[in-house]
Amino acid sequence: MLSTALQGFLVSIGLIIAIGAQNAFVLKQGLKQEHIFWICLICAMSDAILIFSGVFGFGQVVQSHTGWVDIAKYAGAIFLFLYGLQHFYQAFVKKHSLEAGGKDESSLLRVLLICLAFTWLNPHVYLDTVILIGVISTQIDGDKTHFAVGASLASFIFFFSLGYGAKFLQPLFKDYRAWKILDVCIGFLMWGIAYSLIS
């Protein structure tokens, strides 16, 4: 049981740990200390739903209905382009620091909707989490449930570590210029991922 769960954990953490749009969003919210628990919970729960779906056969449905992936691809690209544009605006127009961050805190609903968009409008999530993990799960000897639990646990540990661990970088982000650099990096990351989706 433990070895099967560990296999799922290692496969999942290897896919999640790569720098992506969702991770950048969680990191920034962690730096701002805004709604961290709910953001991490939404990300981890979404991953768990997708992982269990993939392990128990939904990956075959996704592969046979590629139109859904195409819809997510273009909707996700538009979302990422606009979100990247917002970060460029923040970098070059808005003076931002940790002290100022609390004065214009985003509403919980707005932040959660953005968080859900990062997860469910990202076709890479379906390809990696649903299809790839689903396919790998068919190769294991142990119980698929244990494999899915291990993979889901990796998501919970990663997102909560990223969200709450970001506070250790807060001293650096007392300077508004650090925020500008972060916003520019996130902006280019979002545009790069958007381009990769449609190219």
Rank of each mutant, 00 (worst) to 15 (best):
L116K: 06
D128C: 00
G102K: 15
G59I: 01
G67H: 09
D70K: 07
G57Y: 13
S97T: 09
L127R: 00
L127N: 04
L127C: 02
W120H: 02
A100W: 13
F118W: 05
H65S: 14
L80G: 06
D70P: 05
F92P: 03
Q63F: 04
S107W: 04
K103I: 06
V130I: 01
S106I: 10
T66E: 11
F92V: 10
Y83T: 01
V93C: 02
L112H: 02
S97G: 15
I78Q: 08
A100P: 07
T119Y: 08
G84H: 09
L127G: 05
Q86V: 11
Q86T: 10
A100H: 15
G59W: 12
G59F: 11
L116G: 10
A77G: 01
H65I: 15
S106L: 09
V55E: 13
S64Y: 01
S64W: 01
R110G: 03
G76K: 11
D104M: 00
V69G: 13
S107N: 07
K73G: 08
D104P: 03
L116W: 04
L85P: 02
G59D: 03
N122H: 14
S97R: 08
H124K: 03
L108I: 04
G67Y: 12
T66N: 09
F81M: 12
R110H: 10
Q90G: 15
Q60S: 00
I71C: 11
V62L: 13
S97I: 13
G57D: 07
F56W: 07
L127S: 02
S97E: 06
V61A: 13
G101D: 15
T129Q: 06
H96C: 07
Y83N: 10
V125W: 10
W120P: 11
L112Y: 00
G76H: 14
L116E: 04
Q90K: 15
T129G: 07
K103F: 11
L108R: 01
N122L: 12
W68N: 00
H65W: 13
Y74E: 08
G76Q: 11
S107T: 13
A117T: 03
V69L: 13
L113V: 10
A75R: 03
L108A: 01
F56K: 06
V69Y: 01
L98D: 00
L109G: 07
Y89W: 10
F81D: 07
K73F: 06
Q90A: 11
L108D: 05
A77S: 09
Y89A: 04
A75K: 08
L82C: 13
Y126C: 14
E99P: 04
G59Q: 03
W120R: 05
A72N: 03
H87A: 10
Q60D: 13
F92D: 04
